[in-house]
């Protein structure tokens, strides 16, 4: 099914068939998407699969890890049957740890100034442009926002980053961590307003069963389903089926 969409240059085909169907062919190219949800809902797995498919299609893909060291992340990654280690050797798929960039830029303080935010954005965009990155994942944006301390700074950071990455033709997933009790779609409330799209991953408890769910609540530039789907993380990738309608109590 994904091949049907591959000719559409305005779309970034995620390679996750169910998600591409939901999005009518993929993410509008250059969009900045918030992938949000509480722990264990599959945010990182989905994001990495998005990058692997991109790399397999010849698009250079970059994962910026903010909290977890990427070598540890790779060890714990689902052994995808479609994953080819050559993607990393040939630098089609690149992993960078953000703390290393912080160190290089001399950003050691816990609270960034507006100037430091600009330095950080410039550095990320520089890497994207120099390496001709077409798909980017920042995991997680919440951990970066933790150092921005005010809504104004968070807005400035995401807006600048989104605009400059879009200009570079890069489609970006910003992974956002949520508490199960959170009411909005992001930790600080700002991220969701600025992002071009929001993909919510959740846990749905129904009569003692815990299901992983996915819902696209917003996506600029395309019509899309807003229904909730149940997902499974498998060695052949993320699989999705419609959520059956029944009395349910949700917890994220």
């Amino acid at each position: 099914m994904a091949d049907t969409y591959s000719a559409r240059e305005d779309r970034c085909v995620t390679g996750i068939e169910g998600l591409d169907n939901i999005l009518n062919g993929g993410i509008p190219r250059g969009n900045t998407i918030l992938v949000t949800g509480s722990c264990g809902t599959g945010k990182t797995t989905l994001s990495i699969e998005f990058l692997v498919h991109g790399a397999l299609q010849g698009e250079r893909s970059l994962y910026i890890s903010v909290t977890e060291a990427s070598d540890k992340l790779l060890k714990n990654m689902i052994p995808y049957e479609f994953f080819d280690p050559k993607l990393i050797e040939e630098r089609k798929l690149i992993f960078i740890d953000l703390p290393v960039i912080y160190e290089k830029l001399g950003l050691q303080k816990l609270d960034f100034t507006l100037e430091e935010i600009q330095i950080l954005v410039d550095q990320i965009v520089k890497v994207v442009v120099e390496l001709n990155v077409k798909r980017l994942v920042i995991d997680s944006i919440t951990s970066i926002c933790y150092r921005l301390t005010t809504e104004e700074k968070i807005r400035e950071f995401i807006l600048r980053l989104g605009t400059e990455l879009s200009d570079a033709g890069c489609t970006t997933l910003l992974v956002s961590e949520l508490l199960p009790s959170a009411k909005g779609y992001s930790q600080y409330g700002v991220e969701e307003a600025i992002a071009d799209g929001i993909i919510v991953l959740g846990n749905l408890e129904r009569r003692g069963d815990l299901l992983r769910t996915l819902q696209v609540v917003k996506m600029r530039g395309t019509t899309h389903s807003r229904a909730k789907y149940v997902l499974d993380l498998t060695p052949i990738g993320v699989l999705l089926v419609p959520l059956l309608k029944g009395g349910s109590v949700e917890m994220r």
Binding site: R206, R207, D209, L211, V230, L231, D232, T234, I236, L239, V241, P242, L243, L244
Partner: peptide, 12 residues
């Protein structure tokens, strides 16, 4: 009771 999961496993 996890009917969606049955569908997912068959899909797999």
């Amino acid at each position: 009771t996890m009917l969606e999961t049955i569908m997912l496993k068959v899909e797999f």
